[in-house]
Design a protein around this nucleic acid. Structure first.
Lengths: 219, 219, 219, 219
DNA sequence: AATGAATGAGCCTTCATTCAT
DNA sequence: GATGAATGAAGGCTCATTCAT
């Protein structure tokens, strides 16, 4: 009613959302997606059950928002950590921090990230939400800062590589230590490739023999 | 005294299982995991609902069995396709066929494989089942045939790489064509690495600057 | 800020519970435990199926609550029936009314009470629930009112005797009329008040030799 | 076909039945009625699943047969135990042994007997079966031997008392020791023989004031 | 904005029983 | 007589979502 009440309401809304998103992150990382009910989340957040559905159009979207918010917060913190990147290599340092931050999340919240990646696999993509927009913005900025002149290509590339790396870190059943796989991935993705690939080019298909996996010598 | 003979029973069991597994593959690839009920599967298989639970201890295990059976069948067929690998490069050709077969599955049955990989991610590993054993055996044989002298290390490595590649092919949200990502992966995994890594070695941590992702030049 | 007031919620809850408990009493007495489904109960109560599980953690606990509520209501009504017990024998009269009330329940709702006793036998005891607490409180009060100086001993004693008497009234296969067994029990347990029971056999089985099993002489 | 094969078959039938009945007794006493499936029973008996339904028209009847067989065996053994009852008090001794045998069963196989009594309560009576006939015959004989001139009245009376006593011993929720209740029952029913029961309270609760509910004075 | 009682579709599962062999 | 694969009805229960307050 009063001019001020609007902004007060807005602040209330924001806080309620945040509490719910934080509760989601915690519970899903503790128990996994299916074992976490909206009721649990509301309880942990100290809200009523109905509020969850009031703010989020569904359980899956809630999870997406929660994870993207967490990624955004973690990323922002990493980028602003002192000493802040400066000088000629500032862009490079910023990108390195961003990547480390995301992989650190996979290390620190494996169940949550597993659940997130599984959701993306199963439902074939991202659900639109504010939190994702915010994260995407930050990543794009980082790519630009790094020196990309074609962020529309390079940002999705970075995103895809990050997703792949996260999956690689999380995949179970590899008797080889995760740390080793991770290092291997990083070494290989040394980012020394030529960017701005023509979209569907055969892209260094090696050795010309057309096999998907050319096998030079014994395994 | 003269009950149905053992071999008749065995055959009955085998056929019922196969029907159910086939129906599972079809339906999950059509609709996804959650949208497929055990009732649907029984219906498609032409069996009673109870039979599903009679043969499989749960929905998830049923899916695992179904996918692993499919992978095994596809693999076996690829390996035996004429002209069968022969000569000095037979092992190499066999391995290449195996890898292509698995990736081909991701191409032809994306929803099924998505679901499968999501299940592995979410539940942190494989469920034990006969079908998986059979598949693992075939893959190990292929690795041995390729010339591996340490299949206990090389088979899990291959498996992990295959899983990673499948995920990479399936991950949505990458505006870069899947084929490109795939090729990139293959090139990088050119299999020219030294196998039989000491399990926890720092493994070519490159360039010594400690960043997880050393960034030599602009993206 | 202005959610439904607490007292309104409380009243809503109370009414829903009551409706479900009443429906349970009716249906179980009509059909028995196994033949009554939670769906039937919800239908009779005019609620959705899920409400039953929302209020009660399981079918068995629902039955326990329903029976204990019925016993409590019946008891309370008996104790407050006019003319209310007064004078020096008020405690005795109250106890007599309590016992008659419980046994009357066995007479009027045999299937329900059978089911209840069978549940107690099979699962070795009571499930905790509010309704049981309420009933226990009333019984304890009655024992105290009767003059017990050690209700912690006397209340469980009364409870056990009542349970035994109920079973005795309900046990099938006795060609001897229930009333006879009942009367015998009362006589043995010193309950020489005027029973309100319509005796299907002369109450107060004659003195002296009236034992059911006068062993010293031939049966 | 041959004259002998008939009796051979009969013997086979008898043995199969016995194995099933014994398995039922064991499993139901271990797990309770609902937790025991006909499949479990067949497995324990070493028979095929279908055989259970082939011999018994239903699960409940199987249990009845199993319990009545056990009671019959136990009773018969007690009555024939050396030194066998003889002399003028032989009948009395036989009856005492019979009663002790039944109560001993409640002590030794509480879950089984609980289940049995619960079944009788819930389903309002006995299911007809051979085993029950055999048990009834033995009990009647004992009553006759005791001196009854009207076994048609006295046998059902004994049966009802036994059932009541069994229930009393099994009823949970009485903080008073079972032995106390038991002793009380024995004292009231004139069973002044030397009990074989290890009393957890002094057997033969003394006369007069020893009543559990001496109503005329305050509890 | 917030509440939480109410909804109800739908799930997996169990298991006594049947019957072809 | 014996087998055990097959049946399929029925059941309790979960939980995302709705909506009156």
């Amino acid at each position: 009613m009063s001019p001020r009440s609007a902004s007060v309401n807005e602040e209330l809304r924001r806080r309620s959302r945040e509490r719910l998103l934080q509760a989601t992150v915690e519970l899903v990382d503790e128990r996994g997606y299916e074992a976490t009910t909206l009721g649990d989340i509301a309880d942990r957040a100290g809200s009523a059950r109905g509020l969850v559905s009031y703010y989020f159009p569904g359980k899956r979207q809630l999870l997406q928002s929660a994870v993207h918010r967490l990624m955004h917060l973690t990323l922002a913190e990493a980028l602003e950590r002192e000493p802040r990147p400066a000088g000629p290599d500032a862009g490079r340092e910023a990108l390195a921090r961003a990547i480390d931050a995301v992989l650190g999340l996979a290390r620190d919240r494996p169940t949550l990230m597993r659940t997130h990646m599984a959701g993306i696999l199963q439902h074939e993509g991202f659900v639109q939400c504010d939190e994702q927009q915010r994260l995407a913005g930050l990543l794009r900025d980082t790519v630009v800062r790094y020196g990309s002149r074609d962020p529309d290509t390079d940002y999705p590339l970075l995103r895809a590589l990050l997703m792949g790396a996260v999956v690689a870190v999380l995949l179970p059943g590899a008797p080889m230590p995760a740390a080793r796989l991770r290092a291997e991935l990083f070494a290989r993705y040394g980012l020394d490739w030529e960017l701005g690939f023509p979209p569907d080019a055969p892209a260094r298909e090696p050795s010309g023999q057309g096999s998907l996996l050319p096998l030079p010598g014994p395994l």
